[in-house]
Design a binder for these strands. Sequence first.
RNA 1: UCCCUGAUAGCUCAAUGGUAGAGCGACCGGCUGUUAACCGGUAGGUUCCAGGUUCGAGUCCUGGUCGGGGAGCCA
Length: 482
Amino acid sequence: MAWLRVVEAMKAPVGTDVTIRGWVRTRRDSKAEGGLSFVHVHDGSCFDPIQVVAKGDLPNYASEVTRITTHCAVEASGTIVQNPKGGNEIAAREVKVLGWVEDPDHYPIQPKPHSFEFLREQAHLRVRTNTFGAVARVRHTLSMAIHRFFHERGFVWVHTPIVTASDCEGAGQMFRVSTLDAVNPPRVKPEGAKEAPAGAPIDFSQDFFGKEAHLTVSGQLNVETYCAALTNVYTFGPTFRAENSNTSRHLAEFWMIEPEIAFATLAEDAQLAEDFIKYLIAAVLSERADDMKFFDERIEKGLLARLKHVLEAPFRRLPYTEAIRILEEAITKGRKFEYPVKWGTDLQSEHERYLTEEHFKQPVILMNYPKQIKAFYMRLNDPGTDGAPGDTVAAMDVLVPGVGEIIGGSQREERLEVLDRRLDEMGLPKKEYWWYRDLRRFGSVPHAGFGLGFERAMMFITGMQNVRDVIPFPRTPKSAEF
RNA sequence: UCCCUGAUAGCUCAAUGGUAGAGCGACCGGCUGUUAACCGGUAGGUUCCAGGUUCGAGUCCUGGUCGGGGAGCCA
C-alpha cells in the first residue's frame, strides 16, 4: 500500500488504499457504532491535517488508539472515503503508534492557543503547530521564488564568504572569528624582548588567518567583483551583526539577498526591486494559498488585501528632496511628528510611514539621499539633482505600507577619483580597499544593487509581528539555546 | 545600550502582608460522525534566583537572571 504525503491523500480518489505517516494534532472519541475515534494527522505537506477514522473493532483500539495524545507519531492505513461534511478522510484498517508522547500532562504543546513568547522557548517543538508549520512552508516557498526570479533573468548566484578578514565592510559590530586562546592570547613582543609586556596588543599574526577575522556583515563588496565579470549576480546567505539590538525586527544572524547589476543605473535598480517584490508576493499567494489564508484569518486581518494592493499598485518614485517638501507641507497643514523634518537628516520611520501609508497609499521608492547620511560606495549625483540644496548620492529605499523600509540599495560609485575622495572624507583607509578600488581601475562600469532582509520580507508577507518567529532558531542577544 | 513592564500548575492568568485558586490541557467516567466538541469528577505548586524586613512574604525592600513592549542602530 502506497505511502502518500497528507497533501496527496487529501486529493486521492475515493476508494484508494493509502498509508499516511505523521504526527497527531487532536484525537476525539465517540461511543457510537461500537466506538470510534477521529484522529487528525499532519505531516507538514500542507496546512490542514487529514482525519483518520479508527473504529472500535481495531485490535489495538482500546489499548492504543484511545490513548493517543497530541504529537504522537502514527502510521495509518486504510481507504479514502468522503467525509459527510466534505473533503477526504481515511477509514482506517490499521493504526500504528510509531512514537508515544511520554507524560502527556507535561508535554509543552497542547491542542490550544499558545503565546509566541512561550513557543520561542520550545523552538524544537513549535514547528509542529499550525503557525510555525505555515511559516516554515512559506519561508521555503519564498526562498525558492527568490532563486527562480534571478535564475529566470540570467543572474548567477554567488556564494560570498561567511568569514571575512577585511575589517572594512562598513558600520556594525562584528563577531570575531579566532582560534587564539581567548584566556591567554599571544601578544606583540617589542623588538628584542623575550616577553610581551602586560597589556600589549594581541598578536593576530599568530591567528588562524594571520590577521583579524570576523563573520560577514554583508556580501556586497565581494559580489561586486563577480558583477564586474558576470554582469548580473546575487547573493543569498547568512549575515551576522553583533549589535546589542533588542527589538522585534533585529537578529544577530539573519539571511540577506543582495543582487548586483552591471551596466545599470539607479532607475534600473529600482525597477528590479519593484519587479522582485511583486514576483515574490505572487509566488507565495499562488503556491501557499492555504497557509496565506491562515495568516490572513489568524495573524493579520486584511493581510491578503494588503498584499494584493502592493501587487497591483505601481511603486511611486520619489526624490528625497521632494519627500522633505511633502513632509514640511504636511507639518504646516497641522500634521504632527515626534521628530523634526530637515533636509540632510535621515527620515524617521514615522515619516516613512506617513509617505507610504497616508500621503501616497502605495509603495514608495525614495531616491537620491543627502550624501552625508549614506555609505561611501554610493554614487555621487551631479550637483543640483532634483533641485537639492546639497550633494546627493544615488541611493534608494523601498517603503511599503504596513512595514516601512524593506529594501535599501544604490548605484555604486564607479569613478575611482570620486570613490577615493569619498573614502578620504569618511576617514577610511584606502589601503584596506585595494581590491575594491581595483575594480574601478580595470574595466569599471556603472552598476547598482540592493539588499533585502529575508526575515523582514517574511514578516511583510506573513504578517508575523516578531522577526524571531519567522526564522527556525533565532539568534539574539543572550539567546542561542537551540 | 536606554525607558517602561512582567516572571505563580503543562499553558493562560487570579490571589488586601495571614490556609496558593480558576479556565484550558492531562487523567477517569458520561454523552456524541466528532472537528475550538459538550457534561461530571480526579490529580497536578522549589510562586524565576540570591539576600533582607517582618510573628508571618507569591505580595514589601536590595541585587541579579530571563521574557515582552517602545527607542536607538539597521536589514
